[in-house]
Design a binder for these strands. Sequence first.
DNA 1: CTGAAAGCGCTTACAG
DNA 2: CTGAAAGCGCTTACAG
Lengths: 348, 348
Amino acid sequence: MTTMLPIVPSPGRKRPTIRDVAREAGVSYATVSRVLNGREWVSPEAVRSVREAISRTGYTANPHARSLATGRSGSIAVLLTEPQHLLFEDPNFSVLLRGFAQALSDRELTLILMIASTPEERSRTIAYLSGGHVDGVLLVSPHFGDPLLSQLVKAEVPIVACGRVLGFEQLISSVMADDRNGGRAAVEHLIEAGCTRIATIAGPQDMVGGVERLQGYHDALIAHGRTIEPALIVNGDWSRASGAAAMRTLLDQAPDLDAVFAASDAMADGALRVLREAGRDVPGDVRVVGADDSGLAATTEPPLTTIRNPLDRIGEEMVRLLTELIAGRTPLSITVPMALVVRGSSPA
Amino acid sequence: MTTMLPIVPSPGRKRPTIRDVAREAGVSYATVSRVLNGREWVSPEAVRSVREAISRTGYTANPHARSLATGRSGSIAVLLTEPQHLLFEDPNFSVLLRGFAQALSDRELTLILMIASTPEERSRTIAYLSGGHVDGVLLVSPHFGDPLLSQLVKAEVPIVACGRVLGFEQLISSVMADDRNGGRAAVEHLIEAGCTRIATIAGPQDMVGGVERLQGYHDALIAHGRTIEPALIVNGDWSRASGAAAMRTLLDQAPDLDAVFAASDAMADGALRVLREAGRDVPGDVRVVGADDSGLAATTEPPLTTIRNPLDRIGEEMVRLLTELIAGRTPLSITVPMALVVRGSSPA
DNA sequence: CTGAAAGCGCTTACAG
DNA sequence: CTGAAAGCGCTTACAG
């Protein structure tokens, strides 16, 4: 096998630098830098010969040298502060991460993934971010009152969060789903379908999504002159298992219910299972609406009617906001609507 | 009584540099650099006063300057080449990513996430990586014959892949699960439980995991003197829906089956649903074994007996291998065993 | 429009 | 053990 020979075997092979390009193009390296950065005042011929020299040499700019000279790192940190296992198991996180990756790549920004769960990681992370080694940070699941938040704010790092950050509204940009109106839309859909005993499996009440979606449930019932019955409200923790448990409780407390709005698809799936075991037909006897429109929703039996969590859009807007923040604009808070997606568990 | 005041938070605030630390410590900045890098030949007093100066000034090294000086970037790219949506929906990917994050963080290496799906992204990515702007790359789902692979190899970027990379075994380190023996263990468990008509829902046959797990199914049957019956083998695409469809086919082709080994937990879950609908009791009438031990496995009804995909360990080993590669060692291929996890769908 | 030069913040031989 | 100095590869006023 002779094919194993590398083209340029020298271990100390040097990547071409701006000087190599300049030599090739017959100009000064300052000029090369100018065409690289699209600055004005470069003659067309210079531009052309530099471009040729670049492709001939296979030159790529050294981002570290550039950062050192400009003071801009060209990179953005995606920071996870949750105990990591929780987040990584959340399919929603993957969707968000994908959105970030796309939007950052479009802007030629590097995505640096940082996790701050253990105390050591936290202090290492805060030091790194405060050190200004990153142009900005995308905060994924800020815990209210997390000291990390104020440290970051004090360090004046541009930062945008996913979901409102209580107490920092003026300092931290944020993008979030309109959970409240989403929840309301879900319940109004059930009301319009003629349901009269609508239960809800709410999310954790120490998380904004949990609170807001439940609030939307209230809003819809009140708006239609219904009363809020405690027996129709049970909390879960977003998980399928918790949804199943909550459904059992509901069936117990209010056997005559004819609809359930679960604050997550996973909980709705758990509810579906319990309803099936209890011999209740969905949607015949009981209608079910979930939330998020995660990958799960379309594959349950029957498929879930749900309110779509626009995470792709949220990720995109977070990146846009962050670049604006970096450019010096003031913080902003954006709310993205949730849309009802109708499927078999509660048809139109 | 000296500079106790926290350094000024002026907008144009400059981060402290190595010179600031040197001034504070009363040494030259070369000495500061030495204690920073743990080089020998520094007096204990110098070390102490530098450390104090560092904490007093809140200094953190500028990684870009350091990279420029050392030629090491201190960062590792995690490269996704799959059409991204496929990967991000895969819970296994999250687990792997988490393992990477942890292992890299432990080594104070920065994790850069890169996605190369569109042609533009691909060429941008290849340029970036070939430019030597990253110390190495962790390849998540290499497609056989992907030209990106040979370009990366040609660029002499240290790279380790998840799963064997056909044709590049000598050049690219890889870490993978022992899918074949895992599949074999799953089926032997069923044989030992007394099952005689064991079906399998195999994964895609153009993916190594799909092929190997099916091979393991063969191995076990043959080793126990059983015959391979085509009617007992159906392919899926890893998804729950495909598992359900496959189960229907199996029930049709071989109504007397008493066990199913599905090559993924999601497919097993689909099979579970169809079996339930068909009135077959699991594990009473039919035993079911899945694969991966994803988050799903413990929450199905009944919970799945499965073979654990050691992705946490795989991620860890990939990072270790990569650092060794960067240090100049030769490529290596590692196989991590899969362990049987016994749950209700096929108890001991 | 273009070149020479300073400077970004670090590391690392090289002399002491 | 420690300091002065060169150099990593770029950008950007500053003079032409």
